[in-house]
């Protein structure tokens, strides 16, 4: 059974209570569909970013078997609010 890996980071991981899980791949599924299925929400909030295989991607991106899909809040790296 082909699998996909889902990841949450930072405040999203705290809010939803998990950081990584695997799910069965389903033909035709998109990144946004995974978010909705896992969170019960009807859409992707404006302040949630997504990545497919470690590259930023639009929510409508198709998912293929073996993909790693991540959701996370806006990034805040670099110096401390400099």
């Amino acid at each position: 059974m082909p699998l996909i890996t889902l990841k949450l980071f930072a405040s999203l991981a705290e809010t939803h209570g998990w950081r990584e899980r695997q799910r069965a791949w389903v033909a035709g599924i998109r990144v946004i569909d995974l978010w909705c299925a896992e969170t019960g929400q009807s859409g992707l909030p404006a302040r949630v970013l997504c990545a497919r295989n470690m590259d930023y991607c639009p929510p409508e991106t198709p998912v293929t078997p073996g993909d790693e899909i991540a959701f996370f809040p806006p990034v805040t790296g670099g110096a401390h609010a400099c």
């Binding site: 996370f72 806006p74 805040t76 670099g78």
Partner: peptide, 20 residues
Amino acid sequence: RAPFWKKERLATGTRWVTGN
């Protein structure tokens, strides 16, 4: 662009930094 996230520790608790 680089995926980093900061969580500050204050005397009153912690908070995520929500933007640069």
